[in-house]
């Protein structure tokens, strides 16, 4: 089994001009963690992760203090919302370079890449760079574990 056998083909993607607010609306509506950004030809330009959107609201100190366990109440931070101007800008400002793989990629390679780059979802592209699918850790992991149920596939 390779990636194209377990990935999702119905992918919600956005053009780069989408506003941050609109991107957030799509995330809420579709309950997803990653928005691939594609150009007019459908080629993958980058990604906007749930975390990139949330970073607009996450306090600065989280980047400086490695263990926030001792902060039992985030106080004013919990009720601070991002400024309107930040939400009106295009998602391009939050877009991250995408780490993607092609459809024929092996499952363990895909999983190892996600682990090492700390990815929760992995965009899948065709040879011409067009976005064709998306696989989550669960999609890939479950596909690997599915082999274990097949007696011939497990080593004696």
């Amino acid at each position: 089994m390779v990636l194209k056998d377990c990935m999702k083909r119905d992918v919600v993607s956005i053009p780069p001009a989408t506003s941050v607010r609109e991107a957030a609306r799509i995330v809420v509506e579709r309950h997803i963690g990653l928005l691939p950004v594609i150009d007019e030809q459908g080629k993958l330009m980058g990604v906007v992760r749930l975390h990139d959107l949330l970073s607009l609201e996450l306090p600065d100190f989280v980047n400086f203090i490695s263990a926030v366990d001792f902060v039992h109440d985030f106080g004013a931070v919990e009720t601070t919302r991002p400024e309107k101007a930040l939400l009106d800008q295009p998602v391009l400002s939050l877009m991250q370079p995408a780490i993607s793989v092609d459809e024929e990629c092996g499952l363990l390679r895909a999983y190892a890449l996600m682990l090492q780059h700390n990815l929760l979802d992995l965009p899948v592209v065709a040879k011409d760079g067009k976005l064709v699918g998306l696989a989550s850790r669960v999609d890939i992991g479950a596909a690997v574990l599915a082999n274990w149920q097949n007696p011939q596939a497990v080593q004696p």
Partner: peptide
């Protein structure tokens, strides 16, 4: 920075 932020 932490103290300022949680104080607002």
């Amino acid at each position: 920075i932490l103290i300022s932020e949680i104080l607002g």
